[in-house]
Amino acid sequence: MTDLRKTVERFWAAAESRDWTAFAETLAEDVVYTLPQTRERIAGRERYVEFNREYPGDWHLRTERIVAEPGQVVTWAHFTVGLEEMYAITFFTGEAGESGEGRITSITEFWPEPYEPPAGREHLSERY
């Protein structure tokens, strides 16, 4: 298990529990959060924490999978906002920490939208 993986696990746990102090402690001061679908970028720990604190609705998350190697972690997470369900793929990079627990320096998050498959391949696939 990499140090960054532990940090990302704490990041998601703090987000779910709305522990914004613990959440902020996982982030580098100059963290950059990027959302390619909306072409938004948030720079800085304070702004990113506030972005999450102000997010509307009663949202919750469950981490489905974590893939980690030194310096980078990818997560697949299931989110609910009220009755709506969605998944996000999140890429984290981080720094090495003196205590062995590095902080997150960049986050890029993708929110894939579900869509119907093209007609004509039903004989090859199974819907779930």
Rank of each mutant, 00 (worst) to 15 (best):
R62T: 10
E109T: 15
R53M: 11
A13L: 10
T26W: 06
K6G: 08
V74A: 12
H78L: 15
F110A: 12
F92V: 06
I66T: 14
E84V: 10
F91E: 08
A88N: 09
G57W: 04
L124V: 02
A119Q: 11
S106H: 09
W59S: 09
L83T: 08
D58I: 02
G94E: 00
T2S: 15
A43H: 12
A43L: 09
E50F: 11
L4H: 00
E29V: 07
I107Q: 08
T108W: 01
P112T: 01
S99W: 02
L27A: 01
R5T: 13
D58K: 09
T90K: 03
S125R: 15
E95I: 04
F79E: 04
P112Q: 09
T34S: 03
E98M: 12
A22I: 00
T63W: 08
T26C: 15
G120W: 09
P36H: 03
E122M: 05
V31G: 02
E84F: 08
D3G: 14
V81F: 13
E9K: 05
S99H: 13
R62I: 13
Y55M: 06
P117T: 13
F91M: 07
A77N: 14
P36G: 05
A28P: 00
T21H: 10
I66L: 15
T7G: 01
P117V: 15
G71W: 03
V8Q: 02
G44C: 05
R47S: 12
E46G: 07
H78E: 11
G44V: 03
G82T: 09
A28M: 04
F110H: 06
T34W: 02
T34I: 11
G94Y: 02
W20R: 02
E50P: 01
E109D: 11
R53D: 02
A68C: 04
V31Q: 01
H60V: 07
A15V: 03
I107T: 07
F11W: 14
N52V: 08
H123G: 13
I42R: 04
E16T: 03
G44R: 01
I66F: 09
G97C: 14
R45S: 04
D3N: 13
R121T: 09
R18G: 01
M86L: 14
E122V: 04
